[in-house]
């Protein structure tokens, strides 16, 4: 059910979304996206280039964060603009639990034509992993 524009105001919060990212999720995303960069699946190579370990694809993190917006919007086609800055890698340990990813969002501005800007706060282990994560959603 889409939020009605009349019910949305600056400060309206999106439902918090908590998900987990495991090594299996990285393999699945590598195949689906075509991003086969070795640092997303090979611990040895990731360490050789100075990373603490295997890290998630930035666009997997961004895609998971966008899910919080599409779920709230009701129709994913309502997301007309989406932008992110990758500020910190999400390290994914080699275990069954993986890394935790928490997405919070709030309406930051009401724009023309029933569109709203949603600002996201995306953290893993309490640290911000995306900054300036924003979506423009066309409501109603």
């Amino acid at each position: 059910m889409s939020p009605r524009p009349v019910d949305v105001t600056v400060g309206t919060e999106l439902p918090e979304q908590v998900s987990r990212v495991t090594r299996a999720d990285l393999v699945r995303y590598a195949g689906a996206s075509g991003d086969l960069n070795v640092i997303h699946w090979n611990e040895r190579v990731a360490r050789e280039v100075g990373l603490p370990g295997v890290i998630a694809h930035g666009m997997l993190t961004a895609g998971l964060a966008a899910r919080a917006v599409t779920a709230w919007a009701g129709d994913p086609g309502a997301v007309v603009e989406y932008s992110v800055r990758f500020s910190r890698p999400v390290v994914v340990p080699d275990d069954d639990d993986g890394a935790e990813l928490t997405v919070r969002g709030r309406v930051a501005a009401l724009l023309d034509d029933g569109r709203v800007r949603v600002d996201l706060t995306v953290t893993s282990g309490g640290e911000k992993v995306l900054s300036l994560a924003r979506a423009v959603v066309a409501l109603g």
Partner: peptide
């Protein structure tokens, strides 16, 4: 990858 933006003219 530093930043990424998508502008959808339609889905």
């Amino acid at each position: 990858h530093g930043e990424q933006r998508f502008t959808h003219h339609r889905p």
